[in-house]
């Protein structure tokens, strides 16, 4: 095994641990992680296999297939994270609104007494 393969395996292991902590061992997320990790490990251990799969799919090189997959995967992650960001922004607005209205109510209460 080459040094780069060792480094890549270590990186995959670290990502898996962080991810598992974040998703708190939910079944669906763990299965998805397992599949992605398995694919990653195969690609690191036997890079020629990716070319074999790429050829079956009509792509010339395994590296190209990996690039396409990575881009799509990253775009998907971006879309999901952006959706969560929008949700947080909306909740943030509701919270600020509530604070503003409460402040006004307190001011009015203070003025009345």
């Amino acid at each position: 095994m080459t040094p780069i393969q060792l480094l890549l395996f270590a990186a995959l292991g670290a990502i898996a641990l962080i991810y598992l902590k974040l998703v708190r061992y939910q079944l669906g997320a763990v299965v998805l992680l397992g599949l992605v990790l398995l694919t990653g490990c195969i690609a690191v251990y036997a890079p020629d296999l990716t070319t074999l799969v790429a050829n079956r799919l009509g792509v010339e090189r395994g590296t190209d297939l990996l690039l396409y997959t990575t881009v799509i995967f990253l775009c998907g992650i971006f879309a999901v994270v952006y959706g969560r960001f929008r949700k947080i922004e909306e909740e943030h607005t509701v919270l600020f609104r509530e604070i503003s209205l409460l402040q006004e109510q307190v001011r009015r209460g203070g003025a009345a007494t």
Partner: peptide, 16 residues
């Protein structure tokens, strides 16, 4: 007067 602590935008101000 109701005051938003941060600038949120006109839509947010109207909804408030």
């Amino acid at each position: 007067v109701v005051r938003h602590t941060l600038n949120l935008g006109q839509g947010a101000a109207l909804q408030t």
